[in-house]
Amino acid sequence: MVIETAGAERKLQLQELENLRLEAYENSRIYKEKMKAVHDQNIKKREFQPRDFVLLYKSRLMLMPGKLRSKWEGPHRIEKAEPYGVYHLSHPSSSELIKVNGHRLKLYHGEKVQKSKELEIFRLEDPYIATD
């Protein structure tokens, strides 16, 4: 008789444990949905139009480390916009087009670059140290 009551009590405990586990899964799902909604509110939709000037993010920056090196290159001009965030860029000093993802771009707010204008490039080098 004691064994039967102990067995029934154990079944109730297991069922309660299963209910707690299912409730934890449900709470986790609700939490993830709320966090996704908060995250999605902060995402800015980037829409670029043809003839806009943009800067292109250098994803291979770690090959040449340096604090003062810029992570952005450009300005580039958008020649064509395709669906799903694909853009064709042209650099003012060259005629070839680059196909990039829109997540790697940001709007350029500087002066408009003319097609015939030459860009001056400054390279950062270590200073010369004279030895006596």
Rank of each mutant, 00 (worst) to 15 (best):
R10P: 00
K80C: 05
D52C: 01
R123A: 10
L61R: 12
V100T: 02
K117Y: 02
P83R: 09
L119D: 06
K115Q: 15
P83V: 07
L22F: 04
I98Q: 11
R123V: 07
Y108S: 02
D52H: 05
K44A: 05
K11F: 08
K117P: 01
S70W: 04
M64T: 09
N101Q: 14
H103L: 12
R69E: 09
R77Q: 09
L68V: 14
G110H: 03
Y25T: 05
F122I: 07
L55R: 02
R51W: 05
D132G: 07
S70F: 03
I78W: 00
E26A: 09
H109F: 15
L22I: 10
M62G: 07
L17H: 08
R10Q: 11
R60Y: 09
I3K: 09
T131R: 14
A6I: 08
K115L: 13
H109D: 11
K44Y: 11
P127A: 02
S90I: 15
F48N: 01
V54H: 01
N101S: 12
I3H: 10
D132C: 12
S28W: 15
I129K: 05
N42W: 15
A6L: 11
H88D: 04
L61C: 14
R10S: 04
L20I: 09
K71R: 07
L61Q: 14
L20C: 07
D40V: 05
L12F: 06
Y128D: 14
L119S: 10
K34V: 08
S95F: 13
